[in-house]
Simulated scan of single mutants.
Amino acid sequence: MTDRKTQLAANLAQVENRIAAACLAAGRKREEVTLIVVTKTYPASDVRLLAELGVRHVAENRDQDAAPKAAACSDLPLTWHFVGQLQTNKVRSVVGYADLVQSVDRSRLVTALSKGAVQAGREVGCLVQVALDAEAGGRGERGGVAPAGIEELGDLIANAPGLRLDGLMTVAPLIGEYAGRQHAAFERLMVLSTDLRRAHPAATMVSAGMSADLEQAVAAGATHVRVGSAVLGVRPRLG
């Protein structure tokens, strides 16, 4: 366990240096960017070590893994983010532990989240997941709503009991005009964020960038980066 903590501490330090350097290059303050460590496929013991090392934001993408892990770590001062594609039949479980759901991409999910949050007596932060590879009216390869659908979905979240509209999230597209152009994709997300904030000034969160492209996200203006393998190592294969 000591070896694992040492390994995680070294990895965290490297990621921290990358974020700090990216902020410096972009003329931003380090505190403008929040690190979210994506702990999917890793055990609750790693989450505990990360908390000891000062991590305060963790993310999961599968409820069947996240729910027991969050329960085992419920005594820790953590903010839990759900970042995976979310089926409505998992919503009741997810709203029990997730402080933010970053992958909201359809009206039916908003309705389910609102109902679940009210029943749980919680306020759940929501990000509209934007698919920069989606045609108007469609959804992207990795989930998400087309840019043209942001305003309608954002309004729906903002007016839903138990929910709070916090901003936008994206995953760099693998296809379409932004494939291989992460910086351009993240700059486009920032433009969309500016548009959203005209109607919803408090929706300031912009979640973009992962282990491979966090620098591009910081350069574009992201407020949160989601880093997994650079902190925890190469993920075990899922069975």
Rank of each mutant, 00 (worst) to 15 (best):
V145S: 04
E141F: 12
S107K: 04
T223V: 05
G116C: 10
G180D: 06
E135P: 09
R139K: 15
A160E: 04
V128K: 00
G221M: 12
A202Q: 08
T194A: 15
T111Q: 13
S211C: 09
S103M: 11
R139L: 14
G228S: 06
P161S: 13
L153E: 02
G138Y: 05
E215D: 12
A172R: 01
G143K: 06
M210P: 03
M190W: 10
A208S: 12
S103Q: 10
L192D: 05
R142N: 05
A220W: 01
T194M: 12
G176P: 10
P201T: 09
L113P: 03
G116H: 06
S193A: 13
P161W: 15
A184H: 01
M205F: 04
V171R: 01
R226L: 10
V124F: 03
G221N: 10
S207F: 12
M205S: 08
V104F: 04
L109N: 04
L156F: 11
G176Y: 09
R122H: 12
A203W: 03
S114L: 14
A203Q: 03
A212K: 05
A120M: 07
G221Y: 10
A199L: 09
L214C: 10
A148I: 14
G138A: 12
S103F: 09
A199S: 12
V128W: 00
L192Q: 06
A146V: 14
L214S: 07
Q129F: 08
C126F: 05
E152T: 13
G121D: 14
R139Q: 12
G209F: 00
T111S: 14
G144I: 04
G162D: 12
E152D: 13
A158G: 11
R142K: 10
A146C: 13
G149D: 15
V124H: 00
M190S: 12
R164V: 15
V191F: 11
R139G: 15
E151N: 15
D155K: 14
G167T: 04
H224G: 01
Q129L: 11
R181N: 10
R106A: 10
L163I: 08
D213F: 05
D195T: 11
G125E: 02
V225K: 02
Q119N: 13
R106S: 10
R142F: 01
V171F: 01
A172C: 07
G138C: 10
T111L: 13
A219M: 08
L214I: 15
H183R: 15
G137L: 13
L214H: 07
L196T: 05
G176V: 15
V110L: 11
A219V: 09
L163S: 02
S207T: 12
V191C: 11
L192I: 11
V227S: 00
A217L: 11
E177P: 15
R139F: 11
D213H: 07
T223K: 00
R198F: 03
K115L: 10
E152Q: 14
V145C: 02
G162Q: 13
L189E: 00
G121Q: 14
P147G: 15
L196N: 01
